[in-house]
Amino acid sequence: MTEDQQHKKEAAVAYDYDGDPRWADYWSNVLVPSHLAARPEVLRHFKLKFYQRYVDPDLVVDPLSAISSPRSSSNSEPRVQRRSATGGTTTRQQSPPASTASRSSFRMDPPTIQFLANAWVTVMAVLAMFPFLPYALAEKAYRLTLLGSAATNLYCIANQHGAPATWNLQGLQDWLRSIFETTGNDFLYLLYAFFFVSASIPLKVAVISLAIRSLEQVVYHLRRNFSNTRLYRKYLDKPSNWVASNSNLLKSLSANAEIGLGFLLIILLLTPQRNIIQAFVHWRLLKMMYALPSTAPYHRSSWSAIGRRVNPLIHQYAPSLATPMAYLQRWFVS
């Protein structure tokens, strides 16, 4: 390693990852088995990859070596000794049965299950928003999108945290606190999907953020596991690269859709289709998204843009609303 790379690596190790809101979002999108994610060398590797991507592209990151446990003698492949014609013995290694190898290659591990679930959510969301689909089919696709997203987020939480250690109030509080601290994004969108799937009125704009989130997860899995396949290189390489390179744009679009949905729910309060509980819960979720590190930069940027447009109009045409709006802003950011 050159001296320049050594300095770059030292700077990467000393970087304040917890203070960078992009790190929480990056780490939440890394699909690593739970027994490996806790290892320091794995966390250090992905921190260096994050630093290389967002801070210093010239940093050279060594590949993460495969971590495997040593095989015991009982699990080693059987060897068969055969006496040769000259009287000596030759040893040949017996290959495993073809059926066993086939089963192991198609094992449904957690990342694969999450990939399939996110692909399902993405397809259903596209069908739900397709303008020429019959209303009954579009509404069914809308419900399936929300149910699929809720199931996916619940599976992610269960896969990483399991069940509570104790089934009492303190145990549940500790379990929920650990979920919100490590997988807060999944928990928020679980609540988001649950409350909209239980509503009587289908609001198609609600699936935009779910579709974007699932699409990013699908693209990440495809680029990580299928980038060398011919089908991917021929049909999916350019769309996947576009999604990956425009991640910030898509997250901003998602934040705008969620905020716009909040204002739509307020407007619906003036109609017979009002749902007070749904509007209240959604605005509480918006408040949490404003504070959560993985979503805060995009929501704060959207709210700043809204403030730059709305505040001058309020001061010019409705100055009496300035004080109530100030109270609402203090509640929202507190």
Rank of each mutant, 00 (worst) to 15 (best):
R233N: 13
R233T: 13
K234C: 11
K234G: 05
K234E: 09
Y235I: 10
Y235M: 12
L236V: 00
L236G: 03
L236F: 06
L236D: 02
L236W: 04
D237N: 13
D237E: 10
D237K: 12
D237M: 07
D237G: 01
D237T: 04
K238D: 00
K238H: 04
K238R: 10
P239I: 11
P239E: 00
P239K: 14
P239R: 12
P239A: 09
P239F: 06
S240P: 02
N241C: 09
N241E: 02
N241W: 03
W242E: 00
W242V: 03
W242C: 00
W242R: 02
W242S: 00
W242T: 01
W242Q: 01
W242N: 00
V243Q: 05
V243F: 09
V243T: 11
V243E: 00
V243P: 00
V243N: 03
V243W: 07
A244W: 07
A244E: 04
A244D: 03
A244F: 11
S245K: 08
S245T: 05
S245W: 07
S245R: 14
S245P: 02
S245A: 09
N246G: 03
N246M: 02
N246W: 00
S247Y: 08
S247F: 08
S247I: 03
S247A: 04
N248M: 03
N248G: 04
N248S: 04
N248V: 11
N248A: 10
N248I: 06
N248F: 05
L249P: 05
L249G: 09
L249C: 09
L249Y: 04
L250A: 07
L250V: 07
L250T: 05
L250D: 00
L250Q: 06
K251W: 12
K251I: 08
K251S: 05
K251L: 13
K251M: 10
K251Y: 13
K251C: 09
S252C: 09
S252N: 04
S252R: 02
S252I: 08
S252V: 08
S252P: 01
L253Y: 04
L253D: 01
L253A: 02
L253G: 02
L253N: 01
S254N: 03
S254H: 07
S254G: 11
A255Q: 02
A255F: 14
A255R: 01
A255H: 03
A255Y: 08
N256E: 12
N256H: 11
A257Q: 06
A257I: 10
A257F: 14
A257C: 13
A257T: 13
A257N: 07
A257K: 06
A257L: 07
E258C: 14
E258I: 15
E258Q: 10
E258T: 14
E258A: 11
I259S: 06
I259T: 07
I259Q: 01
G260F: 15
G260I: 15
G260Y: 12
G260L: 15
G260R: 10
G260K: 06
L261R: 04
L261F: 01
L261T: 06
L261Q: 01
G262Y: 03
G262V: 12
F263P: 02
F263I: 14
F263R: 02
F263A: 01
F263L: 09
F263W: 14
F263V: 14
F263C: 02
L264E: 01
L264Q: 11
L264A: 14
L264M: 15
L264I: 13
L265K: 13
L265N: 10
L265C: 12
L265E: 08
L265I: 15
L265S: 10
I266W: 07
I266A: 05
I266M: 12
I267V: 14
I267K: 12
